[in-house]
Each structure stands twice: as structure tokens, then as C-alpha cells.
Amino acid sequence: MSPPVARFSLPAVACAAGGTGGHLFPAEALARELQRRGHPVVIYTERRGAAYTQALAGLDHVVLPARSLEGGLRGKLAAGLTILRAAWQARTDMRRRGVGVLVGFGGYPSFAPALAARSLGKPLLLHEQGARLSLANQKLLRLADGVATSFPATAGLDGFDPARVVDTGNPVRAAILDARGDYPALGGDAPLRLLVVGGSQSARVFGEVVPPALLQLPDALRRRLQVSLQMKGGAAGEVETALRTAGIEATVRPFFDDMGARLRDAHLVVTRAGATTAADLLTVGRPAVMVPIPQGGSRDEQRRNAEALAAAGVGWCVPEPELTAERLAALLVDAFASPTVLPAAARAALALGRPDAASALADRVQAALGIGDGTAA
């Protein structure tokens, strides 16, 4: 039997997010801002999302069954039944909590809660993290009352009333907001800090290319480097030992739970180009070598993100097939040799950041609930 739900003076808000950090972290950021304003909040996700225990700490969350609609007829039928079962569970939970609005953050696990909210006659807001509407948000668009975007120009909204679209930016976690500060000094013999992260989908290519690239660097540069390398697999210890033997102060881990602090201290980041990663970089103001996941076709979101940021001076877009140890080593040598290149890229990143995104999206949620202009606590 479900425990009783405490009653609050303000309506409850539900967030629905897929199981990756790219979907879940913006939902967390919004949830905590709404909690601060006095709203009870629940996050609906699936088992992968529930594994982000630090992100969900102190937040009510419900794990729903989820299955992608990809596959043949049998797979689609099984997915349809899973969605219906999850929608029924979400609907029951929403009624119990008195949910007044649902905010969907994309990913196929957001489908069922969106259907549940609409079946209860509750407003549905969609938040899009990328420069193009995700597949889940695209399919839910006709049910949506409004869309919040992370980029001023977001593809895939053709036919949707522009008056119901607002550019809020992409909410980031408190740890990222707390990491904002001056770009670290580069002069003299001060350490040069390189952060290499692959995101929730990881990046095996970083583990294959980055260590040999670092070993090709000149000795003087290696001895100034402090490297934080996210690398999954059993070879992490061997890689760390090899780098330290070459004079590089290296920390190699499968996951960093202090990402805000490492991002704050970094002079340069080597990373994927997901929308949430981009938002973190811009909020803190750090230059990056962006290696988009090779998706291909019209939905090549990460490539578009990386190219747009590179064009804005935030860093470099290096397609994965072109990421070789030789190219990365040459890029690092040039970047760290210049006293102006990295600080200029950091300033370009910071100028594009939206640290107020969670607040702006919370305003939109409260407006959907009919709470003044959305700024009341």
C-alpha cells in the first residue's frame, strides 16, 4: 500500500524523464527549484534513471516500466502494452498526489506519464534540451500545451503555435551553478587541468585515443598536466599507472561524482556534445574539444550542437572518425601553448550560458498552474 502523501498549499508538479543524465539532470534542476518555491514534486523515470541516486536524493520519484517503440511488430505491440501499464500506474499516482501539471523532458519513458496527465486533463509542458525536437517530444507535440526550448532556434516545431514556445535555456544542477567562477590562470608553471568525460552513454573512444595522445605530448607539457579521465572497463588502473609513469598526474575513474568541482578547475574539457553537457560547459564557461556521437541522418543532434558551439568560439568540433591520437595531441599542444586561445574560448562559453534556466522554466510551470506571473514563491 502506498504511503500517504503530505498536503501542500501549492499544487504538485510532476516531471517525466528518460533514463540518461541528459534527460534526468534538467528534470532534477527544475524539481529542486520548484521545491524551493514550495511545490511538492515527483519525478517519473525508469530503472536507468533511478540509478542516479545522487541526483534523486531528497526527491520523490517513481520508477515506471518502459520500453522503446523500436523494433518489429511484436516489439511495438509489447512496447504499447508496457506504455499502457505505465500510464495507468502514473495516472493513479498523479491522482493520489494531486498533480497539477506534467513537464516532460524527453526519452521514451516520458511517454506514459504524458498520456496519464492528458487523460486527467492536466497541462503538459515539454522541455527540449537539444537544437532539434527529440523523437519522444516530437510524438507528444500535438498533446502539449507549451514547449520550452534550450536554443533560440529549435527545429521540429513546424506547425506548433509560436506563442506557446518559450526559450528558457537548459536547467543545470546546483553543483554546476556552484562551479561558476573565474577561469583558472594559465601562466608560469601552474598545473594545466584536462577533464575528459564521456557522459552517461560513456565514450570508449576516449579511453582508446586520449591516453596515447597524452603520451605523445612534449615532456614539459606532460609534467604540468593534471588529467581527470572518465573511463569504464577493467583497464582504468593500468591506464592511470601508464600516465603517471610518463609524468602526468592522472586520475582515471569510471565515474566522477564531483563533476562540478572538476569542471570548475578545468582549463579544457574533452567531451561528447549532448545538450546537457553543452549547458554545463556554457554555465561554468569552459572551452571544450567536442566529439559528437556519430548518429548520422537528420537526427544528428550532437554534431549540430558541437558545430554551433565551435562556430561561436567555445572550442573545437572533432568528428569521432577524425579523432586520432596524433590529431588530439597536436590540438592540445597548440591550445596550451597559447596564452589567449583557451581564455577567449572560456569567455565565449560563459557569454552563452543560461544560469537562470531552472528559474525561467519554473516560472513557466507556475504560469501553467495559474499562479500569478510564475514568480511567486
Rank of each mutant, 00 (worst) to 15 (best):
P3S: 02
R7I: 15
P11R: 08
G22I: 05
L24Y: 08
P26K: 15
E28Q: 14
E28L: 09
R36K: 13
V41W: 07
R47F: 14
Q54D: 14
A57R: 13
D60G: 08
P65V: 01
G71P: 13
G75Y: 05
K76I: 14
G80N: 10
R85S: 14
G98I: 12
G98Q: 10
V103F: 01
G106A: 02
P109Y: 09
F111I: 10
P113I: 00
A114F: 01
A116Y: 04
L120Q: 08
G121D: 07
H127S: 07
N137H: 05
N137M: 01
V147H: 00
P152F: 06
L157Q: 07
F160A: 06
D161P: 03
P162S: 11
R164M: 03
A175V: 07
I176G: 02
A179D: 00
G188V: 01
A190D: 10
V197D: 13
S200W: 06
S202R: 15
R204V: 15
P212V: 11
L214D: 02
L217R: 00
L221I: 01
L229E: 00
A235N: 04
A246D: 11
G247N: 05
I248W: 07
F256R: 07
G260H: 08
L263W: 13
L268M: 12
A275N: 01
T276Q: 12
D280F: 01
D280S: 10
L282E: 03
V284Q: 03
P292E: 06
R299D: 15
D300Y: 02
D300H: 09
E301V: 14
N305V: 07
P319Q: 10
L323I: 08
T324I: 08
E326C: 04
L342M: 09
L342F: 04
A348S: 14
L350D: 00
L350T: 11
D373G: 12
